[in-house]
Amino acid sequence: MVREVSESCVDSLLTEMVACYCNRFYANKPELAARRIEAIGYQVGHQLSERYTMERPRFTDHLEAIKFICKDFWSELFKKQIDNLKTNHRGTFVLQDNKFRWLARMSIDPSTDNVSPLEDITSPTAESKAAQAMSMHLYFPCGIIRGALSNLGIPCAVSADISNLPACSFVVRIKA
């Protein structure tokens, strides 16, 4: 039996980590906060991929390693597989999770955070603030994927696309 903890433990820890780096340490330096959050994710992904591939033969090519991330790795973390994998066959892969668990409880409506007059609800500031908070949270799973793939011998850059919430796409660009 695999040891488990309540999902609230992970959710709370992630929320507080992001709040810590974005609001306390680097309140006015979002790029520095993002880098730290991604670095934490990288460390986690690196270690997890080590554990999940212990009894597995070496992957023969990039696609096989990416498929491992989509199936076994994602199932360990989120109890489901990536819903869709696309590639341009030139080193870029797009992994789409149609209902990404770590975004499911986040509100995109800025008015729930600060009650404000109607005009302010649609102001660019309020909307961009909510979007920025969400994107900060995504540096962590991007770091996880990059760390996992790096440990499997695939240096890459990973970014997230949330234009179709609650779906989230992770764009993996393999470095030549």
């Binding site: 903890v5 309540s6 360990e76």
Partner: peptide, 8 residues
């Protein structure tokens, strides 16, 4: 809802 403790 529970998750893999190793992630935590």
């Amino acid at each position: 809802e529970r998750v893999n403790a190793e992630l935590f």
